[in-house]
Design a protein around this nucleic acid. Structure first.
Lengths: 341, 341
DNA sequence: CTGTTAGCGCTTTCAT
DNA sequence: ATGAAAGCGCTAACAG
């Protein structure tokens, strides 16, 4: 903008029209990339826009056009990095179509969950993606906004699609892997939440098939690193001969690592540790944690597709899609040494 | 909403008024919490709102009231967790005032940086907070939106306030600490970016004062864990007698830890490692990395205050505020054993 | 206290 | 190809 741009009110489409010597409608036409605008006029308008530092008002545009290209993504905590891949997957699918996604975390709202959704919903969203474990209650999203739930399976809003990583299968994958490695004194540190519950269920069902008893700790508690540390510490205190521990998520796996270190044992020589999420922490060169990849990015692209298809056909029957997780072996797991035990 | 809620258009203030048997203005009054509404009418309106599943249109509200209570926060990557504390600090100050903050990451925009800001700016923001290191260019924010830059000091938009952690002081703090611990063979792994540059400068100025030469690695490269690993590996390959390494950030410190482990050395017995940011990784019970706390939350509250004061007085002279960092000693640093060397 | 009347900035027919 | 006019849903004076 030019130097004389005083700190006056922000320019409107009228200012641009006047400066370019055209009508407001013409400006609107170039704004929407209408092909039926003479090049000369178009450049004149573009020039005026630049000179004035004009930026269309999103509010006015939304109001007038009665639709937005915005889709909202609700997560529960920015520190749960799994949403980053989810987001990337969504963007990949959505950006070419001109949509933008706005993310909001519910933890910062006064009213956990509902407040954030409320706020997002008030902006004429084209669609809503809910990605939080443990929603306090069923979300009242209203029937006007296509919504898909990513990664959580309880209390789905009516009519919403569900796209999630198959935590049950992931749990079985984990159990199978540890069993194949020869472990039979197996522990599991878990916590609250639907995801943890399913991982546990899958894990348990597989170990049960092999007649291997499970040492479980952490039920009803949180899923932070500290929770993982506490649960693993307790587990090891009660069952010192444990040779493998499956943690409900990578963060808890780090806590488990701390608990093992605190007992003076080493990983994976004494105890194997397996996490879940294939988070940045697991991928860390230093931590190098064996983990189950929940394919968040794929969940993201499928979520986006579900959204698009529901926008096209609001009445189609709700989807229930489960993405198969994948085991990523790394440095924290190893075959049980015959020597031990 | 009731079961008969057909999938029709979303209800407007008119529908609510009609259902409650009042005028549109009255509905608007209860929406804005006007005290001059009779309780009976108010409850009637509230009931109608609930029954209809009505949600005010943000676009219309914004357009009509000519102001929003929205402030935007631009970051460069959701994985850079430092923004979480910044955000918390801002929220703490802003929420009581009724403002909400919308965060957007520039990495997901086609046009890095500018695209995101552009989008944010188009929504009648009450204020804008820019929190990214290494902006490609000066941001054209326009004079209509009060903006404050948090944590970065180059290429400030004209008229913007600056609130940042004092990286120079932090660097000096780091050097002083390592020196006090008795280290004299000191290394530094750094990377690109203004923050890293200042940390390095401060660190260097302090070691120089004590006549201690510095082994520096990583200039011009990135600041990821892998970058930290590479830089630290190279540094140690050239100067195997190094006893302490200061990393430009915690992530690089983790990479440094990996490099040290790869050489078969241990921390802090053989080498002390000091990070910067006091990130969740540093605070991890398992990693337990000594670090410099950049007081992001405080930067956040000051940022919010700067924003509020500028909204009140758009013409006040730009602030340049530096927050003093604090050293947090943890398990990765220790006094140099007299035995060694 | 409550209803009426103007717009907010922009998109959209509909003419020209 | 371009201009005129009519709203989008809501707030904000003003009257009653």
């Amino acid at each position: 903008m030019t130097a004389h741009a005083a700190k006056t009110r922000r320019p409107t489409i009228y200012d641009v029209a006047e400066r370019a010597g055209v009508s407001k409608s013409l400006v609107s036409l170039v704004l929407t990339n209408s092909p039926s605008v003479r090049p000369a006029k178009r450049t004149a308008v573009l020039a005026a826009i630049k000179e004035l530092g004009y930026r269309p008002s999103r509010a006015a545009t939304t109001l007038a056009s009665r639709e937005t290209k915005n889709i909202g993504l609700v997560i529960d905590d920015y520190r749960n990095l799994w949403f980053v891949d989810l987001l990337r997957g969504m963007q990949q699918e959505l950006k070419p179509l001109g949509y933008q996604v706005t993310v909001a975390d519910s933890s910062s709202a006064d009213d956990p969950g509902q407040g954030t959704v409320e706020r997002l919903l008030s902006m004429h969203l084209a669609g809503l993606v809910v990605a939080m474990d443990e929603p306090r209650e069923t979300l009242a999203t209203g029937p006007w906004t296509p919504t898909v739930v990513a990664g959580w399976r309880e209390n789905l809003p009516e009519g919403a699609d569900l796209i999630a990583n198959d935590d049950d299968a992931g749990g079985r994958l984990a159990a199978n892997y540890l069993l194949e490695l020869g472990h039979t004194k197996i522990g599991h540190v878990t916590g609250s939440g639907a995801a943890a519950a399913h991982r546990w269920a899958g894990f348990h069902s597989r170990t049960a098939e092999s007649g291997v008893p499970l040492r479980i700790w952490g039920q009803g508690h949180g899923t932070t690193e500290e929770d993982g540390y506490q649960a693993a510490s307790a587990l090891l205190a009660h069952f010192p001969d444990t040779t493998a521990i499956f943690a409900a998520n990578d963060t808890m796996a780090v806590g488990t690592l701390a608990a093992i270190k605190a007992r003076g044992l080493s990983v994976p020589m004494d105890i194997s540790v397996l996490g879940y999420d294939n988070s940045p922490a697991a991928q860390s060169r230093y931590l190098d944690i064996s983990s189950i990849d929940d394919k968040s990015e794929e969940v993201g692209t499928l979520t986006a597709k579900a959204l698009m298809s529901r926008i096209a056909d609001p009445d189609r029957t709700p989807l229930r899609t489960f993405v198969q997780p994948e085991l990523i072996p790394r440095g924290t797991t190893s075959r049980l040494e015959p020597a031990r035990n």
